[in-house]
Every structure is written in structure tokens, then in C-alpha cells.
Amino acid sequence: MNRRHIPLVTELPLVIWLVLVWGALWQDFSPGTLLFGAVIAYVVVNFFYLPPVELTGRFNVLWLVPFLGRFLFQLVTASVEVFWLAVTRGPRLRNAVVAVALRSHSDFLVTATGHAISLIPGSLVLEVDRSTSTLYLHCLNVRSAEDAEAVRRDVRATEAWLIRVMGSARDLAALRAEEARR
């Protein structure tokens, strides 16, 4: 365990998150609780060392709201679809393992995309290839190459949304260039 000194700025998002968790658990956001929470958060961050998560340094709330709306919509439609498949199709089901190459090479963004994809029923991340940032997904009810292509388009659209919300400036520029070409 090589413990090097991490500047407070990179730890700040984690400390703020821990203070919010503390307040939420006590269901009390008075200054005293928050201050004590901050002390505990500082101790936890320094004693239980974890390698810092490398954020991209960008966060756009304006894009976050439509992204969440799209996510909830997909969540509901996909849940109903899987329910329908379980009742009507059941054992006669065709699946596929699809490889999707992502644009971004940031670990944080690949993780976020994989998380968002896994949360929606009907797709599940089996393996991640970090060197080429490729996700290998197991997808329910994929019967043809066109279905697999639709999955790929969908995942890349999710990634594009996440880049708009919190991708690095470079990823964002690449995305803009790609959209301009189309």
C-alpha cells in the first residue's frame, strides 16, 4: 500500500458525498450534524485509503436532467418489456453477447456507461476490455444482426449523453466532431 499524499481538492467530492450520506442517515441537516459528519468524513478518507477516482473535471447539470429523464424512460419501458418476455416467451428466448466499442478511454466514463447499461433490464456487462474500452454485453431477446446493431447504437447513444454530462473536454470535442460529420 503506497500511501502518497493526495491534495485535498481531489478528495473534496468524496468528503462532500460522505457528509451528505451522514446527514441523510440522521435525517438531520443542521450545522452541528454536518460539522461532525465532516470530521468523520475527513478521518475516514485519510485512514481508509483508496486510490482517488480520476474525475474528468467537467460536470454539466443542464445535460444531466434530460439524461436522467431518458434513463428513467428506458428503465420503465425495458422493465415492462422484460416482464412481457418472461410471461409470453419464457424458455423460447434468443440472446446474444455483443461487443460495443466506446469512444472514451477514461475509466470513469466507461464505468459510468457500463453502470447505466447494466441498470436497464435486458442488457448486462459481462467483460470490459480496458485497453480498447470495449464492453461485452449480454443482451436479452436479440434475434438478428440488426438487433445487435440496435443495441450497439443504443449503448453508444448512452455514452454520448454521459460525455455531454461529465466527459472530458477532449471526449466532448471528439463527440462534436463526430456529430458534425453526420
Binding site: 428503465l75 418476455l85 418472461a86 410471461v87 419464457g90 433490464p121 448486462l124 459481462l126 449480454h138
Partner: peptide, 20 residues
């Protein structure tokens, strides 16, 4: 879904729903 789907990985999709 757990009872009717044919293999483990298909069942996993069904299991995600009540959790989310």
C-alpha cells in the same frame, strides 16, 4: 423470469428489476 427463463444469464436480467 427466474422460473421461466432458460439459463443463468437470462435470469440475471429478470433479477435486476425489483432492485431498481
Amino acid at each position: 423470469g427466474l422460473v421461466r427463463f432458460p439459463d443463468l444469464l437470462s435470469r440475471m436480467h429478470a433479477a435486476t428489476k425489483p432492485q431498481v
